[in-house]
């Protein structure tokens, strides 16, 4: 017997009631600001001032903004390096841990690699900025120690090194939940697959590339999406360490959006940048979902 839609809703009313507060909060803090930002992007609007309708002028201005190309170039480089780092180092580390024969050792290493996530990201940035890259930091002092004074520099203030110096923050990039995600993927591969591969003569790196990597593609896909979103949206590191400088050599669109909103008080323009970034993230995510196959897709294809 088929129930009417109304009956279904009434029957599930308790569930809707339970979900309602969460949805209301999401709407207030995520959806409404998004709609507001979208609307504000069509106004010349200063904090504390009057808003004037200017149509798509903010978008037009952003397309000719002198920071557009350098900031998107920096964002692309940083995101690309970030994606490579997110795939290579945690996956390699997870594989090394997974390959340990002792269950105790695996457990201990998992905990040890997880502990550093208790250090706040801001603190990590400040440690790198103050203790590693500063004039009397680890890198320069090491260079002085080995008689390479000429190679010392302000790593974060030199136009040629700043982007790569920022990319290296977090080295050796083997901590946090990324390892656990890959570890869980590796653990879900049935033993029979490994045994079959061994029988076929695949061992070591070859087995890792041909068996493990394809079977953790779902995890890789997730990490890639999250890294791309973080790369396009994120600017905290730049804000703390370089403020996008020197010049615009480490500027990213998110940081320029922030400066426009709160330093220059150009809230409408900042909203236009935000909408622009949203469209890019959406497009990249769709491309990723559509064309980057997960392990399930690969298995289904077989």
């Amino acid at each position: 017997m088929k129930q009417s839609r109304l009956q279904t809703i009434v029957r599930n009313s308790a569930c809707y009631a339970l979900v309602a507060p969460t949805f209301a909060l999401l709407a207030v803090f995520c959806l409404v600001p998004f709609v507001w930002a979208f609307a504000a992007s069509f106004y010349r609007y200063e904090i504390g001032g009057e808003a004037t309708w200017i149509g798509i002028a903010n978008y037009q201005e952003y397309l000719s903004d002198p920071t557009l190309l350098p900031s998107f170039y920096n964002m692309f480089i940083l995101t690309f390096i970030g994606v490579v780092i997110t795939i290579v180092f945690p996956l390699g580390t997870a594989k090394l841990i997974f390959s340990l024969s002792s269950e105790k050792a695996r457990y201990i290493y998992r905990i040890l690699f997880l502990i550093p996530i208790v250090v706040p990201g801001v603190a990590v940035m400040m440690i790198w900025g103050g203790m590693i890259y500063s004039d009397s930091g680890l890198v320069n002092e090491t260079l002085r120690l080995i008689g390479q004074e000429d190679l010392t520099r302000g790593w974060l203030s030199n136009p040629d090194t700043v982007l790569y110096a920022v990319s290296c923050i977090g080295f050796p990039f083997a901590s946090g939940v990324n390892i656990l995600i890959y570890y869980a993927g590796l653990a879900s591969i049935p033993d029979s697959v490994h045994e079959a591969a061994q029988l076929d003569g695949a061992t070591g790196f070859r087995k890792f590339m041909l068996i493990d990597v394809p079977l953790v593609l779902s995890q890789i896909k997730l990490m890639v999406i999250l890294t791309i979103i973080g790369g396009v949206q994120g600017f905290q590191g730049m804000f703390i360490l370089t403020r996008g400088g020197p010049g615009f050599r480490s500027m990213v669109p998110g940081l320029w959006m922030y400066f426009n909103a709160f330093s220059f008080q150009r809230m409408g323009y900042a909203c236009a940048i935000g909408v622009f970034l949203f469209v890019i993230i959406l497009a990249l995510t769709i491309v990723n979902l559509k064309y980057f196959k997960s392990s399930e897709d690969l298995q289904a294809a077989k």
Binding site: N158, P159, G245, G247, F259, F264, Q265
Partner: peptide, 19 residues
Amino acid sequence: DMNFNEIMYRMLDLYLNDG
């Protein structure tokens, strides 16, 4: 405005450092 200052600061920094 701050927008002017920000760009002047950044580009002079870059110019002085041979960027």
